[in-house]
């Protein structure tokens, strides 16, 4: 029972703010179907020409491909390193381990522009500017915090006795890790992977600096398009990205619900 009276005006204002939040997500879909060559709502009929451009133009296609490869590989690195680190910190439980874990969220706090300058300069020295490897490594390290945070959250619900039981039953440390700990925190690992993937897939500022003249990921192509000609094909790209985000978010919410149900059952 709600003892706090809900005020109609507050509720109306809240839904107005929420509509403001959703407005941009909904406007790009109709704009992407315009029949004109400039950004506008469709007036006489709809056309899929801009969506066709997106999937036939070699520049956009190679952008999608580069973004996919970079996001997939950098996510794999971030998930492997981040999961191991979170489990190590959890098991060690010392002050130093605690500080390592705190240091891992540094990339979430430092403004990206600052890091972009630093990594650009380092990559000039290492001759990594404009290489796939360079972007993959930079995205992996900035994706680490998401994995460490989600896996740590999962571990906090795990009974340390499980690990001891596995060890006393004769499993060695790698076996315990692979067969007992990781399966138990899998939803956290998957959530982390999703966030790390979205992070890389959407990342623009670092790529602007270290992409050089060779690498044009999807966000970088969008950025150039916005600054140059505002082609309606960008609206099609934006719509595709929003749909993609929606699907991924629904998967993540599903995972979280499952995790909470299980944790609730265990408690």
């Amino acid at each position: 029972m709600h003892t706090l009276k809900r005020s109609g005006a507050t509720l109306a204002l809240a839904w107005m703010v929420l509509s403001f939040l959703l407005l941009p997500a909904f406007v790009v879909f109709p704009v992407s179907l315009t029949t004109t060559r400039y950004l506008s709502l469709p007036r006489d009929g709809v056309s899929f020409q801009h969506w066709r451009t997106l999937f036939t133009d070699p520049a956009w296609m190679s952008g999608i491909w580069e973004s996919l490869v970079i996001a997939t590989v950098s996510t794999a690195i971030a998930v492997a390193a981040g999961t191991l680190c979170a489990i190590g910190c959890w098991r060690l439980g010392t002050r130093v381990a605690e500080q390592v874990r705190a240091a891992m969220i540094l990339p979430l706090m430092v403004p990206t522009i600052v890091y972009a300058l630093g990594i650009y300069r380092l990559y000039v020295e290492l001759d990594l500017v404009g290489t796939m490897l360079g972007v993959i490594l930079a995205h992996a390290v900035t994706g680490l915090p998401y994995v460490v945070l989600t896996v740590t959250a999962s571990l906090s619900n795990l009974d340390p006795a499980l690990e001891k039981a596995a060890r006393s039953l004769g499993a060695n440390v790698p076996q315990t890790l692979a067969r007992v700990i990781v399966p138990n925190v899998l939803p956290g690992v998957l959530s982390g992977a999703i966030f790390a993937f979205i992070h890389s897939w959407d990342e623009l500022v670092i790529v602007i600096f270290i992409g050089g003249r060779a690498l044009f990921t999807l966000p970088r192509l969008m950025w150039d398009g916005i600054n140059e000609n505002l082609d309606p094909a960008i609206a099609a790209v934006a719509s595709a990205l929003i749909l993609f985000t929606l699907v991924v978010l629904l998967v993540e919410l599903g995972l979280r619900a499952r995790r909470e149900r299980r944790d609730g059952g265990a408690a």
């Binding site: 390193a81 191991l84 680190c85 390592v100 630093g118 990594i119 300069r121 390290v141």
Partner: peptide
């Protein structure tokens, strides 16, 4: 378990903290 921290720590120090010090 200390070893498990190593990959993430090396990534962070070499490719994040070091470039910031460079700045």
């Amino acid at each position: 378990y200390w070893l498990a921290l190593l990959p993430a720590l090396l990534l962070l120090l070499g490719l994040y903290v070091a470039p910031l010090f460079g700045v």
